[in-house]
Design a protein around this nucleic acid. Structure first.
Lengths: 347, 347
DNA sequence: ACACTTCTTGGGAGCGCTCCCAAGACTACG
DNA sequence: CGTAGTCTTGGGAGCGCTCCCAAGAAGTGT
């Protein structure tokens, strides 16, 4: 009979469940939404009906009536190929997925290209499309975060745009990660320690440079600016930076690159210059990506807990959404997760 | 005034747009949905009103009234870490995203764990949640594809479950890819050509083995079964397989691994055994992943057009959905995209 | 036994849109 | 100039659910 109904066209509605359980629509709704104001007996009857009919609430109707969507968006800048190249993306998604697993919340994936597109996106996201937004890999002058904030859309950002980030954020400890890398060099007796930075308009890259400087200063080493070579996260830029470094300070005996990919570029140049790793020059990267594990020699690297970042971002967002519904506005969580130096043979 | 309305709580509704344009709700709807049965003049008026009010249709209402969702789901087995390790996932997503970019279609990401969960998932997906489903990395005995098929949910599968796949599918040419790799060995004078296979319950892995066999046979080489070592796509299994190969046929002078990661494992073992690559043993992988590019020496590998697979999958799905709405059922597209041998220094 | 609370419960109203019917405006043709 | 289309157009009905009010049931205190 239940089968007959399913077959006969539509899926069962709340009304049908209620009829089957011999209660009113309102009561059935209460049971399904876990309201406490229902007698145990009634609850059982409704639950039985739900099971028999294989009832699943219609999301659209819920969204329309309840003015919410039970969906959040993960906004990813598709332009950032660098972002996709790393397992970063998959790990974030896995973390977010895990946090959402036993929720009714759906995950919407949005690839936003240029800034114009992102501006339009804000419109769409707020047009009752999602309850909240996860922003990933945002650059300093991205218009989207501010737009979302103005529009009152609960959002969480991975990393930060700058030191005074206003949105709730989840970041890894870039500063301490970099510092740990350089401290490791120092502990092993390296003295001419260089760094290859990422794009410094990315806050995380700046923090890595800060960590490098701090470690150098703390150790009382000579903070030579010629040991700092700017790059842009790409392999090629890493190679170029390494060449500059070698030209300016041929005595360099350690290099901290702000990404594994740049470290790979540097390694190439070091090898071409006849230097051995780690004997002549020690090398450390950042990200602990597949590239690090498979490099020759395997690359020491600073690991970020990406999957956990995803999980925490989702958790924070769910909380923001709940507060938003209740009209409250608490403090903006600004979470920093620890990094870890994974020591391999390059250092 | 428009601003006042927006500020005053809700976003503008169709009704408001209609009022502003001085037309009826039905007419406004027609304009917004691009119906041709509207006079040019009216169309303009409505479009102006839409622009002025910044109107964006309410998805939930649309879905409820129109009995569709304008959303598709990308179902990913989260268990398959192997899947996530590769850039595979990101590339598929990028391709799907590109195909959906100028559509109203939303992309839902669903991480489905075990089979029980996937069974439940079928329920949810069909409960008016999405218009179609993209299945990625499906193993032979996954219950989900059949469930979706029974429930009449438009679906597209990446790869195939077996030769007689019934769902619309988009696959890369594993057979020809493998064959090209082995032909390349043969052209360079290799004679004792081994292969390390993936899990043979994965159709693609089987096809790669078939391609290997075919190439060996076509060249009139001796098809020695001892040159075939089964593995499971993991690096460790690749290393193990390589050891077996070396033990059985120490004269092996070429190895085709069915994945880059397994090739990495094999490389390790070859190096430990004192063999040089490619001088003593040539090596080819599959996937053309970051691992291949950064291996030492850089690994020759068979490239699959992953991003394009994503794009094509989405396109096929959109078509299936359209047919579904019109009640038609055409042929099930079964698309195979070409692979490409990317020659580097390992062969 | 009576007046009050407190629990449960049913069901109307309404969320914003699409579908579709019927009516009005026009055009064409005999 | 009338009649039969053909275009446009307005707006009722209804999608399935949540919210909320009012009413009935049950329990409390005196």
């Amino acid at each position: 009979m239940a089968a007959a109904r399913v077959r006969s066209g539509g899926r069962p509605t709340l009304e049908e469940v209620a009829a089957r359980a011999g209660v009113g629509r309102g009561t059935a709704s209460r049971v399904i939404n876990g309201s406490p104001r229902v007698s145990a007996q009634t609850r059982e009857a409704v639950e039985a009906a739900v099971a028999e009919l294989g009832y699943v609430p219609n999301r659209a109707a819920r969204a329309l009536a309840g003015n919410r969507t039970d969906a959040i968006a993960l906004v990813v800048p598709e332009s950032e190929t660098r972002f996709f190249a790393e397992p970063y993306f998959s790990d974030i998604v896995r973390g977010v997925g895990a946090a959402l697993a036993d929720t009714e919340m759906q995950l919407l994936l949005t690839l936003a290209g240029n800034d114009r597109e992102r501006r339009r996106l804000a419109q769409y996201l707020t047009a009752h499309r999602v309850d909240g937004v996860l922003l990933v890999s945002v650059h300093a002058d991205d218009p989207l975060p501010d737009l979302l904030e103005q529009l009152g859309m609960p959002s969480v950002i991975s990393g930060r745009r700058h030191a005074a980030e206003t949105l709730p954020s989840v970041d890894s400890d870039n500063f301490e990660g970099a510092r740990a890398a350089v401290d490791h060099f120092i502990a092993r007796g390296r003295r001419s320690i260089a760094t290859i930075t990422g794009r410094l308009d990315v806050y995380g890259a700046q923090r890595r440079l800060d960590g490098y400087r701090k470690a150098i200063a703390s150790a009382g080493l000579d903070p030579d600016e010629r040991l700092i070579a700017p790059a842009d996260f790409s392999e090629e830029s890493g190679a170029r930076a390494m060449r500059e470094l070698l030209a300016r300070r041929p005595d360099v005996d350690a290099v901290f690159a702000a990404s594994d990919v740049m470290a790979a570029g540097a390694r190439q140049v070091l090898r071409e210059s006849g230097r051995r790793i780690p004997d002549d020059v020690a090398l450390i990267g950042f990200d602990d990506s597949a590239v690090a594990r498979h490099m020759d020699p395997p690359l020491t690297s600073v690991r970020q807990p990406i999957e956990e970042m995803g999980r925490v971002m989702a958790a924070v967002l769910l909380q923001e959404i709940a507060q938003h519904h209740e009209g409250r506005t608490e403090e903006r969580p600004r979470i920093v997760l620890p990094t870890e130096l994974v020591i391999r043979e390059s250092s």
